[in-house]
Write a protein that binds this DNA or RNA. Sequence first.
DNA 1: TCCCGTCGTCCACTATAATCGAACGACTTA
DNA 2: TAAGTCGTTCGATTATAGTGGACGACGGGA
Lengths: 254, 254
Amino acid sequence: MTTDGTSTMTSVLRAFDIITVLWEVKRAGPSEIATRMSIPKSTAHVYLRTLAETGYVVNDGGEYSLSYRFLMTGSRIKHRNSLFRVSEQLLSELAAETDELVTLVVEQHDETVILHTERGDRSLELGLYSGMTTPLHTNATGKAILAQLPDERVDEIIETQGLEPVTEQTITDESVLRSELADIRDAGYAVDWNQQVVGMGLVGIPISIDEQVAGAVGIVTPTERVKNEEYRRTLIQKLQETVDSITIKYRYGH
Amino acid sequence: MTTDGTSTMTSVLRAFDIITVLWEVKRAGPSEIATRMSIPKSTAHVYLRTLAETGYVVNDGGEYSLSYRFLMTGSRIKHRNSLFRVSEQLLSELAAETDELVTLVVEQHDETVILHTERGDRSLELGLYSGMTTPLHTNATGKAILAQLPDERVDEIIETQGLEPVTEQTITDESVLRSELADIRDAGYAVDWNQQVVGMGLVGIPISIDEQVAGAVGIVTPTERVKNEEYRRTLIQKLQETVDSITIKYRYGH
DNA sequence: TCCCGTCGTCCACTATAATCGAACGACTTA
DNA sequence: TAAGTCGTTCGATTATAGTGGACGACGGGA
């Protein structure tokens, strides 16, 4: 066990490592955790019992698994979040108006986090859901955020996260990405199709609060639809109206 | 400091206490955490730094707050959950068919946890969302679950949770509750209105898998609508069909 | 402009509490 | 029935969490 430059609490870190392992295996007893983490069985047991006491882990019949408390805490964080509260109704209206899937995303830990989705009547049914994360460079909402971040943050993100491709269309070249970010800054919106999921495309516009990116809103459609320039233009316009409303409502209703 | 009968790890427990405090105050620095928890500032700092390293807490500019990782982990737990996966589509159809708000709930830590909601066109807009918890005895889905639990579990839940009223209609008498649970067992469904929220009513049916309650499905409506016996009957019938489909699909498609 | 108070952060000592091997009873399997 | 699991408990040891004090940065008030 190598100690980092700055000292941290090994027991707390290990507790969260166990949470990660429990996530991977769904359920496990002390023995399985012990072998997977190379620690004594008795040690694993104390951790599990302690985690069970917190309520984030549940013990049924000697086997342990993650509880729904993560869902509780996570959902509560989402639902009291100012940006979400301000946006929810407006996003719902946008979804109804466009009949498409609408997403609200934020950046955290150098990734796109989907904060909320609103479905329209003919919206795509991908596995997108609130809480899901994606690399920033693989879709329009992420690129919209990247375009508004300070250069040094962009450098940092590219360095630590890389530009991993997830489809054949994913941007993997740094200079291509940077020039596209400049275009996005000029245009005020971002577009992509097939870069994150083949068959899926989206338009995205960043939300700026006090000169800072607070997140982005996206409209997700089948590639076919978003490729159509006229349709795309109407989507972008409605999207921009929604983002404007969110910005104003945030400023005055908050 | 008195040691409990069973020993647990104080550092891990304290880490989660800090998470709870962080939840309450939204953002805080080491000093505020220290005063709130009556611990030295330096101790609070080590905890916060460690929690930040796990990714569940984020440090921006010296102040710390809970990150969206809770939402990520919680949502992932939900979305890979067998009961949810089996039910999602069927619940969506039920919501479309009835135009009402449909909920899927499970029991954990003696409470009702809302696992999923599906909105219909004229569904109530209360603050119900996935991850929210309510006492079991205050609504039809909770009572539907209670009715299927072993007697000793019901005893335990009543003893530890009590029968706290949240509206004037909430059941607070144990014998009333027990006789209603017997009725629910006979009828196969549960009903309530104004017991959890004034103006809200619902019908609920438990989902049984392998002789055990796995959860319950509910249809949430304005009190006025669910009070109408004929309408209520049609809701219960459609709800039962959905629950039957879930049960079958779970058994064979899983 | 300067100063004082408070902030977040860091460091080193010490005593506490996490760690770990061994043993127990309860199951399952051969 | 016996041998191999499992989860759990216990007590000794020693690694490590807890702590006070010091540092630089920041901000409000004089």
